[in-house]
């Protein structure tokens, strides 16, 4: 499942693992937790090799995708499960208080809503004061409205308690907004790790560029600070030379009335409220590019337009040439 993953998480940091389903991100999380053992490789915690340790001796919190709350215990009983000592109930109460669930402490999981279960699961994982919290798609069973708010709360809580966390998700927006750093995975490999800005603005591979939002992949010839492409010269974020593949975000392009420069025909228009994305076919080719415009842009399907490059492109590491979309 996993192939040569090398990943480090720093104290107090929130790291997101992002990738399509089946990319190995959940497996990686389970290997870190000790729920699965790797065939090769090591897991280090604060410099110590913990690979042979069973999960119960790793001191990590785990928030499961479906929360895995114990159905026979109350919310308080669930949170107190991992606590020892006389004051365990007191500490469990404090943990429930932190997630605002004091009122529901005597309810069984079946009597709680999805969002409430989520908070209890989080409180349960945080209560023993773990060195690292692992979150496996914790927001995916919440409905959209609740998801953003819960995400923000959880982030605040993790930061307040100074807890290191690894979050697994397939939702790029969630990864970008939740994490301090994120890693993109595919086919059991870790493709790129960096801050959300780095990974979004400087993707290293076509897959990363496409997985984190829309992009145009263009073939070009590096000429130092710019590259020559079918859209004319495109400024580069980093100087490059020779044949290359370029990622150019739709927001790096604008539509203008036909004139000088590359011409195209609008083939699709997708209105999304806060912005508007056009698909434009370059004249005389079957190549299409995506352009993000303001919602007031006047062009309709079939219109002739000019395409202007307003942003920078990023040269990608790719061994084999990739099609232009």
């Amino acid at each position: 499942m996993l192939k040569g993953v090398d990943l480090a998480v720093y104290p107090g940091e929130i790291l997101a693992l992002l990738g399509p389903s089946g990319c190995g991100k959940t497996t990686l999380l389970r290997v870190i937790a000790g729920l699965e053992s790797p065939d090769e490789g090591r897991v280090l915690l604060e410099g110590q090799d913990i690979t042979p340790l069973p999960p119960e001796r790793r001191g990590m919190g785990f928030v499961f995708q479906d929360y895995a709350l114990f159905p026979h215990l109350t919310a308080l009983g669930n949170v107190a499960f991992g606590l020892k000592g006389k004051d365990r109930l007191e500490r469990a109460r404090r943990a429930l208080e932190r997630v605002g669930m004091t009122l529901f402490q005597d309810r069984k999981p079946g009597e709680l809503s999805g969002g409430q279960q989520q908070r209890v699961a989080l409180a349960r994982a945080l209560a023993p004061g773990p060195r690292l919290v692992l979150l496996d798609e914790p927001f995916s069973s919440l409905d959209a409205g609740l998801r953003a708010a819960t995400r923000e709360e959880v982030r605040k809580l993790l930061k307040e308690t100074g807890t290191t966390a690894i979050l697994v998700t397939h939702d790029q927006e969630e990864a970008l907004s939740f994490a301090d750093r994120l890693g993109v995975m595919r086919g059991g490999r870790l493709l790129q790790v960096g801050t959300p800005e780095e990974v979004y603005l400087r993707p290293k591979t076509p897959f990363v560029a496409q997985f984190l939002g829309r992009t145009n992949l263009l073939l070009g010839e590096g000429k130092g600070r710019y590259a020559e492409t079918c859209l004319g010269p495109v400024p580069l974020a980093e100087p490059a030379h020779g044949p290359l593949i370029l990622s150019l975000r739709p927001e790096a392009l604008r539509l203008i009335p036909p004139g000088e420069g590359p011409l195209g025909e609008v083939v699709a228009r997708e209105f999304k409220g806060h912005d508007l994305t056009y698909r434009v076919r370059l004249l005389g080719t079957d190549r299409e590019v995506q352009v993000q415009e303001s919602p007031t842009a006047p062009y309709r399907v079939g219109d002739r337009v000019g395409i202007q490059v307003v942003g920078e492109g990023v040269a990608l590491e790719a061994k084999a040439p990739v099609g232009t979309d």
Binding site: A33, L35, E56, R57, F64, D66, F70, H72
Partner: peptide, 24 residues
């Protein structure tokens, strides 16, 4: 998952069985 949750909360396999699985 329930047993795994118990393991991540510090229970041994046998402990997880008796505290989580058996009551259910």
């Amino acid at each position: 998952r329930l047993e795994e949750a118990a393991r991540t909360l510090g229970e041994t396999p046998a402990g997880a069985f008796f505290r989580v699985t058996f009551p259910l």
